[in-house]
Each structure stands twice: as C-alpha cells, then as structure tokens.
C-alpha cells in the first residue's frame, strides 16, 4: 500500500501537479504512513528525478518551477504534522548575481532547484553589491549565501563578499557558496568560500551537507 502511495507521490512531483501532490500527502498521512518516510521515499524521490531530468535537458524550467511549487506545498503539509522541534529543517538560502554582472538565468535555475528541494530561498536578482548580500542575509536569517558570477571581471566581487563578511565579523555565521561559468573549486578555495558548485544539482547537494553540519 505504502509503495503505491510513494510511487504516486513521486509521479505527482514529476508532473508538477501541486494539487494532486497535496492530496496524496493528506491521503498518505491519513493512512498512517510516517510523514518523514512519505517525504523521503515518495516526494523527494520525485524531485530528485526532476533534478536529474533537468540536468540532462529532458525537462525544462517551467516544469521545474511547477515541481518546485508542488514540493513546497507537500513539505508544508507534512512538516505541520511534526512536533515543533522535530520539523524538517529548511535551510534558508540567499542568492544573487554579483555587482556588475547582469546574467540572471543560471542563478534563476539554481533558485528553482533549491526551492524544489525544500529550501527557503531569497533571490536578490542580479547586479548585487557585496554589502547588500550581507545586509539581506542578516534580515533574512540566511544559513547560506550563494553568489553567482558569469564574467572573469565580476568574479572579484565574490572575493569582496568574503572580505566584507570577515570585516563585519560574520564569516562564521554564514556558509558561502560560489558558482558561475568561470568560477572553479580552486577559486572558491583561494577566496575562502565554503563551497563551490559546478551546477544547480551540485549546489543543492552541497547545501544539504552544509546544513546538516
């Protein structure tokens, strides 16, 4: 019985059908299926498949967005059944493309995949100065600050962000993640960023690891 529900849950997420996903969540819970199990074996399995298909160009951004919305809805429903202290922790991620850089698309995809995986995301858009990343992180209560740079000339703002965080004594408060076409693991290491992500999928995986720590 549970297996059927898990399969239906995954399928609803793959199809980006938020209403159906919510219905399955309610149904599963009413049948006494453990909420955490329903989430991980059903819905998360679905969103993982969505992420993989997107990474291979077999599923597209609008569908990814619909799946993300469906995932958020069921996560809320299932989380509400847990006692306050035992709710699935949802990391808060602040994202933006650095100052002087007008590239929006890659970062938008990253934001979608983070949302789809249960993170609370604040997307600052593009052309974001280092200081604003910090101000917004403070206001949002972010756990992770993710910055994107698509130009070799704007990558330096990611370094500036690390320096500003240190200057403000906030470096240990946030985990920082960098990405973008010219950005590499070496660059992340050089500037002192906590993580580098090759693509949106890796960003989510690394963010999950950092949140667990």
């Amino acid at each position: 019985m549970s297996e059927k529900i898990f399969a239906a849950a995954a399928e609803a997420i793959e199809q980006g059908d938020a209403d159906r996903a919510a219905q399955i969540a309610e149904q599963g819970l009413s049948q006494g299926i453990n909420g955490m199990e329903l989430l991980t074996k059903g819905f998360v399995a679905g969103i993982n498949k969505v992420g993989d298909l997107f990474g291979e160009g077999r599923l597209f951004l609008p569908e990814l967005m619909m799946s993300a919305t469906a995932m958020q809805k069921v996560t809320d429903i299932i989380n509400a059944t847990f006692p306050a202290g035992k709710r699935e922790a949802r990391g808060r991620v602040l994202l933006g493309t650095v100052e002087g850089d007008l590239h929006d698309i890659g970062k938008t995809i990253v934001a979608a995949l983070f949302k789809a995986n249960g993170f609370e995301v604040k997307d600052l858009g593009r052309d974001v100065p280092a200081k604003r990343f910090i101000e917004e992180a403070e206001a949002f209560g972010a756990h992770i600050i993710g910055s994107s740079a698509l130009l070799t000339t704007t990558m330096v703002v990611q370094k500036e962000l690390e320096q500003e965080l240190k200057k403000a004594g906030l470096k240990d408060k946030y985990k920082t993640m960098v990405g973008g076409a010219p950005v590499t693991q070496r660059w992340a290491g050089r500037i002192g960023a906590d993580a580098y992500a090759e693509d949106a999928g890796e960003g989510v995986r690394k963010a999950m690891e950092m949140i667990k720590k």
Binding site: G57, L59, F60, L61, P62, I105
Partner: peptide, 20 residues
C-alpha cells in the same frame, strides 16, 4: 551541449528546440 528550456515549448519546423 543542449538547448536550455527556458520556455520549453517553442518549435522550429515542428521540432521542439529545448533539450536538443
């Protein structure tokens, strides 16, 4: 290596471009 589907449904000569 593949066409990113920001729209997902546009076609050329009846062929969907996203994911090509």
């Amino acid at each position: 290596e593949f066409v990113i589907g920001m729209h997902g449904e546009v076609t050329f000569d009846g062929r969907r471009l996203a994911g090509m």
